[in-house]
Computed example of a mutant assay.
Amino acid sequence: MSYIQGYDPDTLREIVDPHRCRERLDEIGGQRNLPAMLERVWLLKVLDDLDEALTVADAAVRQARMAGTRRDLLRARILHATVLQFRGSYAAAIAEMTTCAAEAEGQGWSSIAAFALEHRGKAHFDAGDYDSARADFKRALFLRQESEAPEDQLESTLMAIDTTERRRAEASIAV
């Protein structure tokens, strides 16, 4: 079940129902399996409990490194990087997502590469680097189209491109 109701057209952040997210957090509880941990990280992140999200993300990366697949580890690292982004650590988030995107593309895992690139684009966007954000979103769109991603993923990427182009235009007018 998706908890995402849409994306804020100005910030590119997920729009969620906080009540449903908290209910799901309660359901998951302290489960230690990797899918539950990753879901907890995301829920904590969108609920703005970033300290706890980072703690759980660190544990999820360790668990994926010890007992998961390479794909699991990439997903955990990308999610960890999104928490860093939300905390304002853009350089660290971008560096981690860059490594993950390169590894995923090298393995031919287009959907994971697109996921990493879209989130790296969001980190660039938050940092005010709209040219880099736009390039990442366009590459993510290409990979998603190539891998026949679901329509909602294509739409979120297209919205990110539109928002970034609007911000670039606003920034150039302000200068």
Results as ranks from 00 to 15, higher is better:
S2C: 09
Y3A: 04
Y3K: 13
Y7N: 03
L12W: 03
R13W: 14
E14C: 07
I15P: 03
V16P: 08
V16N: 10
V16K: 08
P18L: 13
H19Y: 00
R20V: 01
E23D: 11
R24L: 15
R24V: 06
D26A: 08
D26M: 09
E27G: 07
I28L: 05
N33S: 08
N33C: 14
L34F: 15
P35Y: 06
P35H: 06
A36T: 08
M37P: 00
M37G: 00
M37R: 03
M37D: 00
E39G: 01
E39D: 14
V41C: 00
W42K: 00
W42P: 00
W42F: 12
K45D: 06
V46S: 01
D48R: 04
D48F: 05
D49F: 03
L50T: 03
E52Y: 02
E52V: 01
L54I: 04
A59L: 07
A59C: 05
R65Y: 06
T69G: 15
T69I: 14
R70V: 15
R70C: 02
R71E: 15
D72I: 14
L73Y: 01
L73E: 10
L74Q: 02
L74D: 02
A76F: 02
A76N: 04
I78P: 01
L79Q: 09
H80Q: 14
A81H: 09
A81C: 10
R87Q: 15
R87K: 08
S89N: 10
A93Q: 02
A93V: 04
A95Y: 13
M97C: 08
A104M: 07
G106S: 05
G106R: 08
Q107A: 12
Q107D: 10
S110C: 07
S111Q: 12
A114H: 08
F115Q: 01
G121I: 06
A123T: 04
H124Y: 12
H124R: 07
F125D: 00
A127D: 15
A133M: 06
R134C: 14
A135P: 02
D136M: 05
K138L: 11
K138D: 13
R139Q: 09
L141R: 02
F142M: 11
Q145W: 03
D152F: 09
D152G: 05
E155D: 13
A160W: 01
I161C: 08
D162R: 08
E165Y: 03
R168Q: 15
A169S: 13
E170W: 15
A171N: 07
A171K: 10
A171V: 10
S172V: 04
A174L: 03
A174Q: 12
